[in-house]
């Protein structure tokens, strides 16, 4: 048996580096993109490759990073959540709504103690996530459509709460985590790092994390293995909503205001971060590590384009093209991987 084990190992080696690289393309391609973009901007602009600017990039991607943690779970299950930005927005507005505002802010709000305001806001986003979960698992609405509806619902709640006004005050804990810093490091970067690490640990070392990968890898097989697939799908939708809510609260503190449509760009950015990083849209492959690389690719791109003084309208087009390239790589990586194992 020992000899056949070595034989198999040799055989696997004999399949060669090429095959290994092909199967790892989803991890390698985003990393190469990141190195290439960093090198390009470093050469193009002297102000890009500085410690200060690294700090800028980290701060700029933090809110996206927090939202992307939950979205990574969802995409690993081969589902999608389009309501993340709206849920972030409504949660950020809610936490301001429950905080005493200055007298000139014309919102009929309900001031509550900070801890209660935070708790209620988290319950709100969890409840919205639960509605997503029930729609997906109990009624059987595809996540794409279910969360599209939730996107509108959350935006509607936001609109009713602020009625076109802007709120500024949030509980002091949120204010500190969103806009304060410790030892020169912004708290929001630390929170994002902790949440990304937490997400990684859950996905890699817990039973639930394994289930997420297995359900994403082959949902039918997960069901025939006696897993409660609906429970797992429901859980990831709630995780996604809660991560979005946390991102929304800190984002409101970071921006210094809570208002309608504040998070609209975060939907595309978060999906882009997860997908550009190489997590498979077909589920089961990728993880938080990929999402982190994806966040840096987006962060470097957004930040770097500012440094090279490019037409801001062209910037949008370039981001679109980079996302398209990432999608192409994502789909090809899946095919190459399937070929390597079949």
């Amino acid at each position: 048996m020992a000899s056949s084990e070595t034989a198999a190992a040799t055989d696997q080696r004999a399949r060669g580096l090429a095959s290994f690289l092909r199967s790892q393309m989803r991890n390698i391609a985003p990393f190469l993109t990141l190195i290439f973009l960093s090198a390009f901007f470093a050469l193009a602009s002297p102000s890009f490759a500085t410690i200060d600017n690294l700090g800028n990039i980290l701060t700029q991607v933090s809110v996206t990073g927090i939202i992307a943690v939950g979205l990574t779970f969802v995409i690993l299950c081969a589902e999608i959540d389009l309501s993340i930005a709206s849920i972030a927005n409504v949660t950020g507005i809610a936490v301001a709504y429950f905080t005493l505002q200055e007298t000139y802010v014309n919102i009929a709000n309900i001031p509550l103690p900070g801890a209660v305001a935070i708790l209620l806001s988290i319950l709100l986003c969890a409840a919205l996530g639960l509605v997503n979960a029930l729609g997906l698992t109990v009624i059987g609405i595809p996540s794409f459509i279910m969360t599209l509806a939730m996107m509108q619902i959350a935006a509607g709640i936001s609109a009713l709460l602020v009625r076109g006004q802007i709120a500024y005050k949030v509980p002091s804990l949120i204010s500190t985590l969103g806009s304060g810093s410790i030892g020169g490091i912004p708290w929001i970067v630390i929170v994002a790092a902790i949440m990304l690490l937490g997400g990684h640990l859950v996905l890699t070392y817990t039973r639930f994390g394994r289930y997420v990968y297995m359900v994403g890898g082959n949902r039918e097989a997960a069901e025939y293995s006696g897993l409660n697939v609906k429970l797992i799908l429901g859980a990831v939708m709630i995780i996604s909503a809660v991560c979005s809510g946390i991102g929304g609260m800190l984002g409101v503190a970071h921006f210094g205001s809570a208002q309608q449509n504040e998070f609209d760009t975060y939907l595309l950015d978060s999906i882009a971060a997860v997908v550009v990083g190489g997590t498979s849209l077909f589920g089961g492959r990728g993880g938080i590590g990929n999402t982190i690389v994806g966040l840096f690719v987006l962060g470097v791109l957004n930040n770097g384009l500012d440094h090279v003084n490019i037409d801001s309208f062209l910037k949008i087009l370039i981001r679109g093209l980079i996302l398209l390239a990432a999608l192409v790589i994502n789909v090809y990586a899946q095919r190459l991987r399937e070929k390597a194992t079949e």
Binding site: M214, G217, A221, A222, Y224, G284, R285, E338, E342
Partner: peptide, 15 residues
């Protein structure tokens, strides 16, 4: 319908 082709054998057995 009941196996995960892209996962290692041990994860298939333990699931």
């Amino acid at each position: 319908a009941m196996l995960f082709h892209q996962e290692p054998v041990y994860k298939n057995i333990s699931i």
